[in-house]
Write a protein that binds this DNA or RNA. Sequence first.
RNA 1: GGUCUCUUAGCUCAGCUGGAUAGAGCAACGGUUUUCUAAACCGUAGGUCGAAGGUUCGAGUCCUUCAGGGACUACCA
Length: 592
Amino acid sequence: MIQDLIKAQLSYAIQQLFGLILKPEDVVIEKTASNFEGDFTYVVFPLLKISRKNPEQTAQAIGDFLLQHFPELGTFQVVKGFLNLSIKPQFWLQFLQQQVSNQNFGMAEPNSKEAVLVEYSSPNTNKPLHLGHIRNNLLGYAVAAILKANGNKVYTCNLVNDRGIHICKSMYAWLQFGNNETPESSGLKGDHLVGKYYVIFDKQYKQEIKDLIASGLTEEDAAKQAPSILAAQDLLVKWEAGDEPTIAVWKMMNAWVYKGFEHTYQKLGVQFDQFYYESNTYLLGKEIVQEGLAKEVFFKKENGSVWIDLSAEGLDQKLVLRADGTSVYITQDLGTAELKYNDFNCNRSIYVVGNEQEYHFKVLQQIASKLEKPYAAGIYHLSYGMVELPHGKMKSREGTVVDADELIDEMEHTAKETTQALGKMEGESEDTLNQLYHTIGMGALKYYLLKVDPRKKMLFNPEESIDFQGNTGPFIQYTHARIKSILRLVGNQSADFQIKNVILSKVEKELLAKLYQYPLIIAEAGNDMSPGLLCNYIYELAKIYSLFYHDHPIMKEENLDQKAFRVSACMLTAHVIKSGFLLLGIQVPEKM
RNA sequence: GGUCUCUUAGCUCAGCUGGAUAGAGCAACGGUUUUCUAAACCGUAGGUCGAAGGUUCGAGUCCUUCAGGGACUACCA
């Protein structure tokens, strides 16, 4: 990396000129602001006390020294205390020549780093996926892909929350009002069918509460005594007891849901190495509770419930097992964590879960740590912000959700309309077109959701819908398609060029410098687990390329070296866009 | 009440470990197509970075206080 070279040179210069020993890795340089000439900037203000010169003189002295000793340095400019260094054009051109045919440009050596397990998606089986789940899925997929690009061995898993009171609610409502309705009989997608009964349950439950309050009960008592909730709880008890008819209904309804999810996952383009089901892991969780009791990490209250006291850690006392011996959320997660470690033996285990569960994961990590589990330190909660609608949070039971399947369909539909209105794809086959609509629609959706910092909550306004212009997935896909169009015209013509015959314009140099950054961005996105960084980068790249495209004709260029150089720049840009988008799970079309 | 978190242009968001005149997109207004795809490019307008202190040569960025959002604090998941 040229940055390392510059740091080393600066370190040497500072030592020679001012006698200060500054390790190269401690030298801070940054990218020169775009309104100044130069590639990298060193700020000399901190040196003034030692240099005993004014800022300009200090910067000038270092610049002069570097010019003598640093062959890659072309020129430098001093603006106040800022030393702006311009790297020689040959350097950028050489970089292009070296990387243009490197299919792995930006990627670290596969499996050169530790193994990581990424859990994401983790749906409940009582309702279909919504926009919030989409954010989770895209984030999980992208983070896994980015870590892989960073050389980690990456496994992905999906912990399905397939048991518990919520699924019993859907079951109860279906048993009451379902008349044996099935996905086949109704034509409803399985997860939507089950979700329908979840909503029916909630309606009835709310009505019962209302009636009970009217008959004199407090709200709290009413919520506990409503017949339907009692019935649902009864189903849960039967389920845990292994009651056969209950299990049969549960299996059937879950199977419907899984089939529905599979369809949605396929549309989203996500996949998993391993599925975990809480119906399998909660028993192991109970065993760990026993282990914790034996180690006196947990304690039992008179009624038999089991707790851990984390007040010394700034948390509360937390329940880990109910008085009736049934497990709670954390019980299951303890079991799953153990199982994951046994299966994959990863020291790092990432949980892509909403920020509403931060407390839960602090507790989980504390417990694992007190039980002296080897995986305790590696538990990492990738806590992302909620997707909110203009009127606030999405609530499944209240029907204020943006349904995943509907949204995906809408995106494809909009892509179709836009494409047809532009009329550039006439004469293409039906298959090609449908594929394209999917690529563009999902490109728009995925980019929209991934470009914002995962840790921040984000707003989604269905009325204004997702754009296809400006800082969007389709703009970047379009940039790629335009490049491919040129490359088709150029044919297999050689992209070899003589560096000495090429003149680099400002835009061309910026394009190369931007391409040069790609490996660094992948590393940053990996460290921060933030696909947004990659989105921003690819957008900036596409923007610079568009400017280059606008200003520099290729087919008409008569200087063959200059032309071949531009073709090379096109090739590498197309490659970086495609490769970067792949890490985000976004496809890129050859034509659009 | 306690813990955490957020507040940057009309709207949605960038702003890397503190550095130069705080940037994009959308929306608004104006311009660019006999020339490789106009889903593009260029320009105009739009800001006391929630408020006040503090640290520093230097603060959108770090610290404190305050205001206003949000999340969590369940024998729900």
